[in-house]
Design a protein around this nucleic acid. Sequence first.
DNA 1: CAAGTTCTACGGGAATCCCCCAATAGCCCG
DNA 2: CGGGCTATTGGGGGATTCCCGTAGAACTTG
Lengths: 233, 233
Amino acid sequence: MDIVDLGTVPKTEAVYSDFLLQLREKFEMDHAAYAGINPAAGAIHGYVTYGDDWKQHYQQQGFHMIDPTLHMSQRSIAPVDWSRLERGKDFKRVFRDAHDFGLSEQGLTIPVRGPYGDVGLLSVTRDCSPEQWRKLVGHVISDLQSMAVHIHDTVMGSDLLGRILYHPALSTREVEILQWVAVGKSQQDIGDILSISHRTVEVHLRSSREKLCALTTAQAVGRAIGLGLIYPG
Amino acid sequence: MDIVDLGTVPKTEAVYSDFLLQLREKFEMDHAAYAGINPAAGAIHGYVTYGDDWKQHYQQQGFHMIDPTLHMSQRSIAPVDWSRLERGKDFKRVFRDAHDFGLSEQGLTIPVRGPYGDVGLLSVTRDCSPEQWRKLVGHVISDLQSMAVHIHDTVMGSDLLGRILYHPALSTREVEILQWVAVGKSQQDIGDILSISHRTVEVHLRSSREKLCALTTAQAVGRAIGLGLIYPG
DNA sequence: CAAGTTCTACGGGAATCCCCCAATAGCCCG
DNA sequence: CGGGCTATTGGGGGATTCCCGTAGAACTTG
């Protein structure tokens, strides 16, 4: 594959846009777009090959609030071919306008998720016959999926420094106790389970909250889950 | 591609094992394994092409607690080639034993995540020279990634009925208030923010706990995050 | 060895949460 | 229209958490 390997170049916004342009050419698509959300870093990323006119219009109309290609893909493990989406009023509204900008309603969105609640959506569009589309997709889907993982990994990696600085080191005991809280146990229960005083449990939870910069224990639980330190019970 | 499409056959455990056997043959691997966790359904899945002797030994030794191929992959967006793992005491412990069962320490694990906290790990191993391995992986990685998504999607889909039954419908207000809790606000704060009584906040939280089968609000926050209903604050 | 971290434990009291109970109003759908 | 659900509000009271502060022992690392 001759698309630039994002792992080997400096990370600027232009690099991602170029990556999408190259991907678009290689896989014979009209357009490509990547959208990424990183809750742990509070970051949102978006790169597209569309012209500025459609980008502005999409934003002004608030289409991201109703765009079913986004919403259905966020609920899917596998790639979502737009031909399988319901042609409801939201779909029609977005793509009636897209037509006016010369954009096709035939496309595909590939969701990728990371371990800390981060999500990336790589979308590609191509205006051609359904038969041609099916052949094209069947031919390139594996590589597109690999590309989706690649760009999402790289974009999230560029948030990595922030996450390293942000990512606190909870002690073993602190993690253990937070996990019990996530399972619904009270401080007294946890003390009984671990054969320690419930006052000690309280101390560890306080330390956990401080390290996670959380005002409450419930918030600390949520953050620890988001960071992959514990799991929902 | 001539591997059976899991979407077209009845879902039995033998089907997944056959899928892995076929995948192993097609991509010239020694072995293939899939492990999946579905927190929302409380389900754990595992299918492997290894013999029963290694499966039993792996379980008896509790290797899943220390296996770095599992732990590092769970923290990665992209596939993890085992050659890049640190040869620490855990790695050595697992693979010293694996050698005794004729299994290679050369492999690759591909993580896949779904929208509800579910995680799937597809691993493949092949005993050959590093040069051959690099060529083989470069040739098949895209297809392996697509396969990983495919099997994980299908396994999680087989939990779908459970998830539909289990997945509670929180009201808009309940979700909104749980999100504020996840941000660290107290019930009084939330009442002030939303211009409602803190007693009303309490009622919504109790309803949320009931629907999420949670004993505490902290547990409810964790579950809601795991279900993708709210996000860590 | 000294410093830092983790683990253990406690007093006292305020704040918050959550238990039980009660109620009304509005909206939607069969 | 009636039932179910959501949203709103309140009383009374107990349980739990969390605030402030304190301390010592064990372990690790430079």
